[in-house]
Design a binder for these strands. Sequence first.
DNA 1: GTAGCGGTAAACAATG
DNA 2: ACATTGTTTACCGCTA
Length: 587
Amino acid sequence: MTKNKEVPVSVAMMSPQMLTPQQMQQILSPPQLQALLQQQQALMLQQLQEYYKKQQEQLHLQLLTQQQAGKQQPKEALGNKQLAFQQQLLQMQQLQQQHLLNLQRQGLVSLQPSQASGPLQTLPQAAVCPTDLPQLWKGEGAPGQPAEDSVKQEGLDLTGTATTATSFAAPSKVSPPLSHHTLPNGQPTVLTSRRDSSSHEDTPGSHPLYGHGECKWPGCETLCEDLGQFIKHLNTEHALDDRSTAQCRVQMQVVQQLEIQLSKESERLQAMMAHLHMRPSEPKPFSQPLNAVPGSSSFSKVTISAADSFPDGLVHPPTSAAAPVTPLRPPGLSSASLHSGGPARRRSSDKFCSPISSELAQNHEFYKNADVRPPFTYASLIRQAILETPDRQLTLNEIYNWFTRMFAYFRRNTATWKNAVRHNLSLHKCFVRVENVKGAVWTVDEREYQKRRPPKMTGSPTLVKNMISGLSYGALNASYQAALAESSFPLLNSPGVLNPGSASSLLPLSHDDTGGPVEPLPSNGSSSPPPLSPPQYSSHQVQVKEEPTEVEEDRQPGPPLGPPNPSTVGPPEDRDLEEELPGEELS
DNA sequence: GTAGCGGTAAACAATG
DNA sequence: ACATTGTTTACCGCTA
């Protein structure tokens, strides 16, 4: 509001990722922020789709070429190659559709499967500059063989999809005014009108986040009878607050991860083609969009350092300048696991759940498979791990296992993060070591945890830095999440919320739970800084931890949920299948 | 400039 | 002897 409209625009043109969330929020007013996010997405989408298109064109051309060349070859070999390529193509298409779905889910793209024909011509050439193949793609399309035929159909389908999806991202000049859709919170769309204008509001009676009578906001399935009610719901439940912003950013990250995955697959494709002595086409096309996505070239250095994360011996064509190639190499990163946002749809009842748990729930699959550093501090992760268990206690090893189970990122550099885990366990008073029959387990003292966490919007700079330096830019957005998640932690830390019925996490001392647990429920955690800044903070020696027994007694009696399986100490790896919504089981 | 925070590295001790 | 667990210290980078 305070800024004139130019500022945010220019900011948007820069790389927003370089700004801290605080900065972004300071610079941008809420609607601007939203618009900016949408804009980013639009850009990403645009470029990605160009890339998709080009890849397909190339692929198709190569198929054709190969077919011609293949006349002299044994048919079987040719068939195999074709098969492989078709698979690759399919994979790409799946990726793209995933991507589009994600965007659609976020409401940035209104993608009606039926309206598969749209103007695509206006695509900015800057992002594309194919100049070579498109015509072949169309012209050569004389289906000679069934295999090719199918490929072509797929290709056409895809193009159609891309078309529709792209149509909204028409170049800047257009400035379609169809944003009679003022932002959910009722504020005017400053940026929206000038460019992205996400056409998702074309149809008056619909909203991209509204469908089948329910809210399509990730993780929210609130039923709304009509659009009006939905709009109300949107304004109240999904206004621009930390939580929504964080979710939005998670979504961004998902998208980015998809892109990274795409680039990886493309690279593989290149390698395949290279191996088959087909034209070793330069990998430029995908380096560009990916680089452009973050919005700045300044990421090149970041991505370089990410190189350490692909020892997978894959063909790394010149890494295409700075293509943030594949920091993710989780073995089983199937396309299915990519639409991470989906699995954890829950009712909005537990909206006050911890950001971390909801984040984890919603992006469980994502973090599980993508080699992205989770945007949470070690302490919060440890706490989450512990709180997820029925009896709120874990051995060190189980904590380790939780980390590796939940986050692909923690499947490497084990020495480092394990050390950090131990360090955190020892350092923070909120983690209490309890001597158990079976050995030592770690529990969480919620009150301590509350104490050590002033409701500041600080994020964790170092975390951000490390994510940036240690990973690809895919982790960048995580930093935003980190900040946001951290900032709103006070919300979630309420054991009462997480586990209403039980003494939950080691809270024998009931006195004085005033400020902490129950209170911070006011829908927006950032606004009300609870009075928790006792200087006792500094008096941190570990003596508490040496008093395990009584504490344990207090807590022991109540495995409140009647843990069906005393799995806590059992084979740690076993639990992962049963619970897919970690933090939520208590809701 | 400083304090506080989080991450990382490392040394060390205790334990199994 | 070794690995694991746990504690502690030091340092760095960042933000408020």
